[in-house]
Design a protein around this nucleic acid. Structure first.
Lengths: 182, 182
DNA sequence: TGCGCCATGTAAGTAGTTACATGATTAG
DNA sequence: CTAATCATGTAACTACTTACATGGCGCA
């Protein structure tokens, strides 16, 4: 079985409720976007493959006249998900931050340029924080869901990192302006 | 020109000093490891390719009887690096954190299991922080280098995130123990 | 003599994105 | 009428990792 991770995202989402591929995409973007993303090119083939493995089942539904394939998790699927969750296999987190890479080699440009990177980054991060905070409000709606606690906690991870990043940007700008770390 | 990023890592490293592929690998692991990594399968082909493009030059060196190919950046290489650094093309940062993904779907396991994930994560992060702090001491040796400020700042990014992560882990463990966010 | 490090490299496979094609429905 | 959104999908490409092969050196 290839492309394990995408499959577990799908299985996980289907423990929330049955949904279509399209809904999965938007849920991933909205909720796990800050630590996990998927593209069409991975999502749709994975759906087909999970169906073949009988880990999910599919049903054609019509909302009005629009047709969509709504997937549900099967018992085997639930079992496969739990196995993954309980497994102790190493969880890798990959990070590739091109801007940090640029900063690392910052000696090769003037401090003015480096500062401009950081100001842009700061701006972007601020917007991200605003979004996180509004998402935090939005999901209060699901406070009764057994998923809620876990959603809040993973969101708080994003918030914590975003705040740390903002502080760091400020520190960097100060340091680059003065030409030394304080 | 394919695989741009690996190439810029190489060019950047060569602005520090001429070095071999092997040295690059260990420098990447030590210094940019927390936000950028490269494997042999990317590094060595990229070296060949950069040489063809005349952005780096190579010289066979013998330390004792051991031979190695020591690369240097050319003027064109320096120019290419600066162009990348000054370019405003979107800098993507990708993040995929499998553990966070598991936590997001934590409803499907008992809180005890979720807490065990977090304790392990916390332990790992603590070790990471210790490492960062000792690296911080180690690089003081290069305080006179024009690269120093940028190295410290990118390191501090790792430290800031690590500390944020530790606080978050603590919060999660508390929340999962009590069954609600505080 | 055998282990571990230095040092370079490649083949095969996995993972992921991009850019597109298709076509229906809805809102302005 | 048309632009946006809903909805599914694929081909081609790019990126990246893994696992291995090779061989010298130093040292216990």
């Amino acid at each position: 079985m290839k492309n394990q991770k995408t499959k577990f995202v799908i299985l996980g989402l289907l423990t929330i409720e049955p949904m279509s591929g399209y809904e999965m995409k938007s849920m991933i973007a909205k909720s796990t976007g800050h630590f996990w993303s998927e593209s069409n090119g991975q999502l749709y083939p994975a759906l087909k493959s999970l169906e073949k493995e009988k880990l999910i089942s599919v049903k054609k539904e019509l909302n009005g006249k629009k047709a969509s394939f709504v997937y549900s998790i099967t018992q085997e699927g639930q079992k496969a998900l739990e196995q993954w969750l309980e497994s102790d296999f190493e969880c890798k987190s990959i990070e590739r931050d091109e801007e940090l890479l640029k900063l690392f080699f910052g000696k090769n440009v003037t401090p003015v340029i480096a500062i401009s990177w950081l100001k842009k980054r700061q701006q972007r991060i601020k917007e991200k924080l605003t979004q996180f905070l509004s998402t935090e409000k939005e999901i209060e709606e699901y406070a009764k869901s057994p998923h809620y606690l876990y959603w809040v906690l993973s969101l708080k991870n994003g918030i914590a990192h975003t705040k740390a990043e903002l502080g760091w940007c400020q520190e960097c700008i100060r340091a680059l302006t003065k030409g030394r770390v304080s």
